[in-house]
Design a binder for these strands. Structure first.
Length: 704
RNA sequence: UGGGGAUUGGUGUAACGGUAGCACGAGUGACUCUGACUCACUUAGUCUAGGUUCGAAUCCUAGAUCCCCAGCCA
């Protein structure tokens, strides 16, 4: 394979594009990381170095162990992706994953998957499994046994007890209090930018607050009766600091902790501690949390009041290096806890799509799409099913870069990155979407079905090593309806009455006559072929030395050997550049023609042969079965861990996710859909069109 | 109205007081057994107004525009 050239064996990051693009300058976050990694005034990197305690499986064999050993003594870089399991991941999340996992890979750090499950009302098990599966597909391995940069899977709910202790600590330090206001009252008393908020219970005695907090925890009070609030600044122009709620009462069943808790921490209270406990160094989030950073800092600082130890100590880790408080030290709450640095970056929006979980939920529930993984959905699962490659999505976000500038990116940029990848990799095959029958009247008759020749075709012109295949050719063929025009405009150089074209790899044919049905529609073309053009070669020069030329080469399928398949064609889900801009409701801009199903496309037989061959030796049949992804929302009963994706070689190309992909010549890139059933007596093939090829003719035709 | 961010060709991004560059797109042409790919050329930008400086996208002042914040969501 030509792309097997030596490609940067030093990094363990998932390698993407086959050819190396010019090196990008480091983005602003990488610049921060690199500055942190340089020795500071103390001679050590800002976040210290990896030790046997936190470097990962240093004694394990294999790549994960190798990476862990290589990490020892090197500057710590520890990132995380913290989704709430309340929906499927979308293309925007992929940016965060690419960034966070990419940072860990680039600096041989570690990357955690952490479920931010602090709100039992909205979270479901199904989403947990879907998110894990999406991360694995994207190449962000979180399992420390297999992923070189994996830090593990964590749950905010595992930290509830620790967070609760810190909450009591803040009360005792006079920095939090139990408030009896209702949600409505708090809202009314919030004030305005100029007018401070008011809160009647701020000066509740510490012991009262402690008692009430414990009663809240122990289920003595109904939902909404009390909250725990931080005592910060009711007049702050930053509303987040106007005594934010830390805990609310909720007698709800949590998907992880069941009925153990009836108070749940608010995101703001929980998030900084989650990073702290896990020893996250760079806590990367989106711009809207910039206003919250002072709050997170205040929480950690408040816990650290009266504590001792180095500034970069991490909770939950060995405190051996913590200097013991001296005899004259004030009462200590324990060693100081770790304080991650939050860095905010801008989300990237794409034209013609939206990333709103609320809208996704509606589309799925109302049946406007065929599930979370509908190939039209901007979910990671949707892109996967559509046939996008994880490498293309990663490369796209890397090319777009990371900044603090809000951007609206042309969707075509994502599509172009995808085409780049697919062009270099996909095997070529021929398929006809809308068959038009062609009979070659001067082609020899060799029996009931005519004579059959086997023509040789190149599998991928971009990749000579992909080799050749043969395709049967006969007297009766199908060509694409769009490749014939009875009354063509000047610039149309495909087939027309009297015109001559090449059939790829086979012969040149000339259209002699047109057969029509009663309605006047063309049903068949009667053509002749030139035996001197075998293999598609030009015929020898004529008597005057002139060589005949054709301008078009068409794809075709032998009617006697064609394999029928269902093909699903997609147009954009929304037909407005910014859905919802017009009316405020994105659903108003839904494209009613976003899905077109071709029930009986005709494919060259090599496709079925490839797939049967793969099915016979496949260990990972996810892409060949319809049960691979839950088709609708709603909880599933299965608690099974999503299996890692096993690479599979299909038609000579190895796909990390085992999804068979092709370029059907001149039509675009296609991926096998899980609705496919190869085990049926008559195999059922279903393909999704991932993307079209660029089409100069369509552009011209549109111009008129 | 208060606070927090942002602003460089059509799009995305770089330049960190010293030649405004890169990628994608678009246009033109070449090549072509995919109207694909590839190749060549072209196109077009520092939000505005002042100031500092030998020199400003970069520093200062004033303004404009856009995004975020008054959930017991995250």
């Amino acid at each position: 394979m030509p792309d097997a050239k030596p490609s940067n064996p030093s990094t363990s990051a998932p390698q993407s594009s086959p050819d190396a693009s010019p090196p990008r300058p480091p983005n602003f976050i990488e610049q921060i990381v690199e500055a942190d990694n340089r020795p500071g005034p103390s001679g050590a990197p800002r976040w210290g170095v990896w030790t046997r305690d936190d470097a990962g499986p240093v004694d394990a064999p294999g790549p994960a162990g190798d990476a862990a050993r290589a990490r020892l003594g090197k500057p710590r870089v520890h990132t995380r992706f913290p989704p709430e399991p309340n929906g499927y991941l979308h293309i925007g999340h992929a940016k965060s994953i690419t960034l966070n996992h990419g940072l860990a890979a680039k600096y041989n750090g570690r990357f955690n998957l952490r479920f931010d499950d602090t709100n039992p009302a909205k979270e479901e098990r199904e989403f947990v499994e879907a998110i894990k599966s999406d991360l694995l597909w994207l190449g962000a391995d979180f399992n420390p046994e297999t992923g070189a940069n994996a830090g593990g899977v964590f749950w905010a709910s595992d930290y509830f007890a620790q967070m609760y202790e810190w909450a009591e600590e803040l009360v005792r330090k006079g920095r939090a209090y139990v408030c009896s206001l209702t949600a409505d009252e708090v809202s009314k008393r919030r004030g305005t930018p100029q007018v401070p908020a008011t809160s009647p219970d701020r000066d509740r005695p510490i012991e009262d607050s402690i008692r009430l907090l414990r009663e809240m925890r122990d289920g003595k009070h109904p939902d909404g009766a009390y909250t725990l609030r931080a005592k910060i600044d009711l007049a702050s122009p930053n509303f987040n600091l106007r005594d934010p709620v830390l805990y609310r009462i909720s007698h709800a069943e949590h998907h992880n902790t069941g009925r153990k808790w009836c108070i749940y921490p608010m995101y703001d209270w929980a998030h900084g501690f989650e990073d702290s406990i896990e020893g996250i160094t760079h806590s990367i989030c989106t711009l809207e949390f910039e206003n919250h950073r002072p709050l997170y800092d205040w929480f950690i600082d408040s816990v650290n009041v009266g504590r001792h130890g180095g500034p970069a100590l991490r909770a939950g880790l060995s405190t051996a290096s913590t200097p013991a408080p001296g005899p004259d030290a004030p009462p200590s709450w324990g060693p100081r806890i770790h304080h991650a640095q939050q860095i905010e970056f801008a989300k990237g929006s794409l034209t013609y799509l939206v990333t709103s979980k609320r809208l996704f939920l509606r589309l799925v529930r109302e049946g406007l799409v065929r599930g979370w993984d509908d190939p039209r959905m901007p979910t990671v699962a949707g892109f996967r099913r559509r046939g996008y490659t994880a490498a293309a999505i990663r490369d796209f976000w890397t090319e777009v870069g990371v900044t603090k500038t809000e951007s609206l990116i042309d969707y075509s940029r994502l599509e172009n990155t995808l085409r780049d990848h697919l062009n270099k990799q996909t095997p070529r095959r021929m398929g006809v979407l809308r068959p038009l029958k062609v009979t070659i009247e001067n082609y020899p008759d060799g029996g009931p079905e005519g004579k059959t020749e086997h023509v040789e075709l190149v599998n991928n012109p971009e990749n000579p090593a992909a080799g050749m295949r043969t395709a049967p050719f006969g007297r009766t063929l199908y060509i694409e309806r769009d490749d014939f025009m009875e009354d063509p405009p000047k610039k149309f150089f495909r087939l027309a009455p009297g015109a001559e074209v090449r059939l790829r790899g086979a012969y040149w044919i000339r259209c002699e006559r047109v057969v029509k049905d009663a309605a006047g529609d063309v049903t068949e073309l009667i053509c002749t072929y030139d035996p001197q053009t075998a293999g598609g070669e030009s015929p020898p020069p004529d008597a005057e030395g002139k060589v005949r030329k054709v301008k078009a080469t068409l794809h075709w399928v032998s009617a006697a050997h064609a394999v029928p398949a269902e093909v699903r064609l997609f147009d954009r889900l929304f037909n407005a550049e910014e859905p919802g801009k017009r009316t405020g409701e994105p659903a108003d801009d839904l494209n009613p023609n976003s899905l077109e199903i071709i029930e009986r496309a005709m494919l060259e037989p090599a496709v079925l042969e490839d797939l049967l061959d793969y099915a016979a030796r496949a260990t990972d049949l996810r892409s060949l079965r319809s049960k691979s992804v839950p088709p609708t929302d709603g909880p599933t009963s299965s608690d099974a861990e999503p299996a890692p994706f096993n690479p599979a070689t299909i038609a000579g190309i190895t796909w990390p996710d085992a999804i068979p992909r092709y370029q059907f010549e001149r039509l675009g890139y296609f991926a096998l859909d899980p609705d496919t059933d190869l085990a049926a007596p008559t195999p059922r093939l279903v393909f999704n069109r991932t993307a079209t090829l660029k089409d100069e003719w369509a552009k011209q035709a549109a111009k008129g």
